Computed example of a mutant assay.
Amino acid sequence: MPNTAPELELDAYLRLNRASIAEWLAAIRELSGCDDIDCSLFEGSGHQVGALSTLTTERGRLICLYAAEGMEITGCRATEPVFLLPRAGNPEIATRDEPWQYLSGLALAWPEDRFRLRLTPRSRVLIVRLEPDFSAPVVPDASDVSLSNYEELITCYLHRAPFFRDDSDAIRLTNDLFLNLTRSPVKSDFTCQCPKLDRRLLRAIEKIRYEPGWDFNLQELASHSGVSERNLYYLMKRETGMTPYRLYQRNRLLRVRQRLVDCQCDVPHISWYAADAGFSHLGRFAALYREHFGELPSETVQWRRNLQGSGAGKQIVEEPDLMLS
């Protein structure tokens, strides 16, 4: 099965792809903690309505929604302040009885707001939800400080997200983001510079990401990028915090995760997917998978099965998590 996940923020935490409307609703309700959220489609079959990635820490939760079909999401009542950031398409938002407005930049929904989202096909929206114990002292009042400073914080975080070294690094940086968002106010002269990656480094990254059949070869990667092996190594380490091989390894793991998220078969062939991505030692694969994503491969599959209702009370026992001890 080819990987078909869309370009999505926090793709290392992809939870749902090619979802039915029933799965989509179940996922949104579980992650938002709001059982009365509803979703209606503008048109389309409803068989593959979108994708979703989510990263949760003790301080809050990030949810990235991707709408494959046009839809309206209603009944969203925030129990704590919620940030909403458009990432693609032309999403719209309405709060209380106010008219629809384009979500052209960062918006903030307060607990008293019951907001609605209207997503055009291929829209992406990032939702940043703070946990009650960590929303103090306060998040910004629009009259107090421009939301653009907070948007810059989130954008810089997303710039770093493709280069999380592992799950613990992701959790640390995400907690830092939540902490910065709850410092009130972010100073008006605040700047968070997100440096552009060197074009030679970008060539290397794109080769690693978009050529799944390529086997790692540092000399070949350096030649493709137009730098020496030594310079490529230090350039990538300096600008992303990762070595070329670490990035290559992580992207192979991401391809396996996409297939596991997509899997709707009775017995998920975890070992097949791992071997197809070049992992010959399956126990080591399971350990690497947990190191990078914070869960075992079987748990990734089980999450979606639970949404469908067919996985309740049933364990994935294909290979006892691939001999992981």
Rank of each mutant, 00 (worst) to 15 (best):
residue 136 A to T: 13
residue 85 L to G: 01
residue 81 P to C: 00
residue 121 P to L: 03
residue 113 D to N: 15
residue 141 D to C: 06
residue 99 P to Y: 01
residue 124 R to H: 03
residue 141 D to L: 10
residue 101 Q to I: 12
residue 123 S to G: 08
residue 124 R to P: 00
residue 131 E to K: 06
residue 127 I to R: 14
residue 81 P to V: 00
residue 114 R to E: 14
residue 109 A to E: 06
residue 127 I to K: 13
residue 132 P to R: 15
residue 121 P to G: 07
residue 142 A to C: 04
residue 128 V to S: 07
residue 83 F to D: 03
residue 120 T to Y: 03
residue 135 S to K: 12
residue 123 S to C: 07
residue 98 E to G: 12
residue 107 A to W: 05
residue 138 V to C: 13
residue 108 L to G: 04
residue 89 G to N: 10
residue 139 V to G: 05
residue 137 P to Q: 11
residue 120 T to V: 07
residue 102 Y to T: 10
residue 133 D to M: 14
residue 109 A to R: 08
residue 114 R to N: 11
residue 111 P to V: 06
residue 92 E to L: 01
residue 132 P to K: 15
residue 90 N to W: 08
residue 96 R to Q: 15
residue 90 N to Y: 11
residue 91 P to H: 05
residue 140 P to Y: 05
residue 136 A to L: 14
residue 100 W to I: 13
residue 101 Q to S: 14
residue 85 L to I: 03
residue 107 A to P: 00
residue 88 A to K: 09
residue 123 S to T: 09
residue 112 E to L: 09
residue 84 L to T: 13
residue 100 W to H: 10
residue 92 E to D: 07
residue 81 P to H: 02
residue 90 N to E: 14
residue 102 Y to V: 07
residue 139 V to S: 07
residue 92 E to F: 04
residue 117 L to V: 07
residue 116 R to S: 15
residue 112 E to W: 13
residue 114 R to V: 14
residue 130 L to N: 03
residue 119 L to E: 02
residue 116 R to N: 14
residue 119 L to I: 07
residue 95 T to F: 05
residue 112 E to C: 02
residue 134 F to T: 07
residue 101 Q to N: 12
residue 81 P to Q: 01
residue 130 L to E: 01
residue 104 S to W: 02
residue 99 P to I: 02
residue 98 E to Q: 15
residue 82 V to G: 00
residue 118 R to K: 15
residue 122 R to F: 13
residue 111 P to F: 03
residue 128 V to Q: 09
residue 139 V to K: 05
residue 102 Y to Q: 09
residue 102 Y to L: 08
residue 123 S to E: 02
residue 123 S to W: 00
residue 85 L to A: 04
residue 114 R to K: 04
residue 110 W to A: 03
residue 131 E to W: 00
residue 137 P to K: 06
residue 109 A to H: 06
residue 117 L to I: 04
residue 110 W to C: 01
residue 82 V to A: 05
residue 90 N to D: 09
residue 86 P to S: 06
residue 135 S to A: 14
residue 112 E to G: 11
residue 86 P to R: 10
residue 135 S to L: 08
residue 128 V to M: 11
residue 118 R to V: 06
residue 100 W to V: 14
residue 127 I to A: 15
residue 142 A to V: 11
residue 90 N to P: 00
residue 129 R to S: 15
residue 102 Y to H: 11
residue 97 D to A: 13
residue 104 S to I: 10
residue 83 F to P: 02
residue 82 V to Q: 06
residue 142 A to R: 09
residue 103 L to A: 10
residue 132 P to C: 12
residue 102 Y to K: 10
residue 81 P to L: 00
residue 136 A to K: 12
